[in-house]
């Protein structure tokens, strides 16, 4: 799995932003907050959250509203909204480009996009220094139909891989918090509880840091073509933030 490419704080007029590219999905996210909230949306004990998803072409449809609802529910559970009451945190996610094969994979396109939206939103929140209680990592798992090839689940498949593995029997999106709790799950298709559990375990392994550092580590970073590749999303997240902090502190550390 190739780690996503991220530039933190790319937009200088927003409070926080992130430009995210992974497997042909390119999204730019911006966060403004805490800012003043409209009177009718104001909540006395916590911050109001507003999520806007803009598709790569055209205006938002009910599908984007549904994605916004999912993001809203998930992010609300990790933002410490009670620390910044009576304010607004506004998150805008603009999908810049999708892989060419995205619509022809036969898989629900909301599901393939969702992990990328979650990552972008989370990184933008980090960049805006909004108080958060945990981290968030997300991954897509797909089971190809057992009648064709082997039915080993595909982990974070690209659109091209999905197209080649067609027909896909079931797709699952999982999002985990830093303390290994399952924050979000969207599963679609035809599957048993055992398959769901296997997919969930696979996703947890990729999303979360191993608890003990001994033994064979899956999360070992390796240098391929000069780029640091990480198979563990928690590590990748820390790496992204570490690079950003190092860059910002370059004058301080040089002297």
């Amino acid at each position: 799995m190739v780690a996503p490419e991220v530039t933190l704080t790319q937009l200088n007029r927003a409070d926080g932003s992130a430009a995210y590219t992974h497997n042909g999905y390119s999204i730019i996210g911006a966060v403004n907050g805490p800012i003043e909230v409209q009177r009718r949306d104001e909540q006395p004990e916590e911050a109001t959250l507003e999520v806007n998803v803009r598709p790569s072409a055209g205006v938002g449809t009910p599908r984007e509203r549904h994605l916004e609802t999912l993001l809203h529910n998930t992010l609300r559970s990790i933002i410490l909204t009670r620390l910044i009451p009576r304010t607004l945190v506004q998150i805008t996610l603009q999908v810049r480009s999708l892989p060419e094969e995205d619509t022809s994979t036969g898989v629900n396109t909301s599901l393939t996009l969702l992990p990328h939206l979650l990552h972008t939103a989370f990184l933008s929140l980090l960049s805006a220094s909004i108080p958060l209680c945990t981290t968030l990592t997300s991954v897509l798992v797909a089971y190809p139909s057992s009648t064709t090839k082997s039915s080993t689940p595909l982990l974070s498949p690209t659109a091209n891989e999905l197209l080649r593995a067609k027909p896909i029997r079931s797709t699952h999106v999982f999002a985990f918090s830093g303390d290994r709790r399952l924050l979000l799950n969207e599963s679609d298709g035809k599957f048993s509880y055992e398959e769901w559990e296997t997919a969930c375990e696979m996703a947890e392994e990729v999303c979360c840091k191993e608890e003990d550092q001994g033994g064979v580590s899956l999360g070992d970073s390796m240098v391929v073509d000069g780029a640091v590749q990480s198979q563990n999303l928690e590590k990748w997240l820390r790496e992204v933030v570490r690079r950003k902090v190092e860059y910002e502190q370059r004058w301080k550390s040089a002297t």
Partner: peptide
């Protein structure tokens, strides 16, 4: 047979 699982909002 499970056809769909949707879960969000908490852990």
């Amino acid at each position: 047979v499970i056809r769909r699982v949707e879960k969000s909002g908490g852990g």
